[in-house]
Amino acid sequence: MRPFDYHRPETSNDALNLADEEAAFIGGGTNLLDLMKLEVMTPDQLVDINRLGLDQIDEVSGGIRIGATVRNSDLADDARIRRNWSVLSRALLAGASPQLRNRATTAGNLLQRTRCPYFQDIDAPCNKRVPGSGCAAIGGELRNHAVLGTSDHCIALHPSDMAVAMRALDAEVIVRDAGGGTRTTALVEFYRLPGDTPHIETTLTPGELITGVHLPVPAGDRQVYRKVRDRASYAFALVSTAAVLRMENGKIVSASLAFGGLGTMPWRNEEIEALLTGEAPSNALFDKAGEVLMKEAELREGLEFKKPLAQRVLKAVLTEATQ
């Protein structure tokens, strides 16, 4: 690790005032310290946000508010989340290991960096790590890479499970700036596609701090999270799907679907949701949804399997959620 100064402020204002351009906020550290050891990330200051009182889960009008430093394990365990936002519990429990979930935080998970091995290798060119240096992944060995939302500059996959469920749940990120202002951003606006600036992953700007996530009352009571991985546990997703559905009189009246293991950000495709809404479940309908999902997928060598796998998982998830 590059040497850094460590600060442990007691208030969000202090935290924001302490943080310079090269600073990083640390919650659990499970991803940040991993990458700092590899010197993929080299902040000059670490601002510890564990004493800012951001570790509460509060019911608020129209939903629930999850503090930035709520641990993944506590979020998964919360009785309200288990009952009403179960897809989120499921996604969290499918990720990492119990030890990691005991440290990893809500905000940290949203900001989790890609597992692309070339990004994690300071000897390899990577546009995300060193803008303009090139992309070693393209033409290299691919498995945990994206097929949706990619560009010629970057095919890095967003690795989170939690964020996939949150995307399906219409989560909003609550951000505070140094002036004390607060803004709320839908996840779709929060994440950025790589384009030709893959090093800029979110709309968060220096001097801003995620203080929490707001989840509205879920649009559906039928919630499923399914993840496929290379071993039975403790592995990142090859493909995952989060579904939040509502059925009335045998028809889908609301469908919200998000996908992991596919996109450069937690993926959602509203065309699929429009396709499903108002329809009675059927294999043909679900197959069509799968076609729509993968129609723009860029299946580079090594990633061809993601198309049939994602389509089969989507079909199985929809079948389960509509039964």
Binding site: G28, G29, T30, S73, Q99, L100, R103
Partner: peptide, 22 residues
């Protein structure tokens, strides 16, 4: 790097990877 669990200790009653925390 939090990939094996050999460093697991119990902090305030919770098991954590001691390698990925300061």
């Amino acid at each position: 790097h939090g990939q094996c669990g050999a460093c697991t200790v119990i902090a305030d009653g919770r098991r954590i990877n001691a390698c990925l925390t300061l």
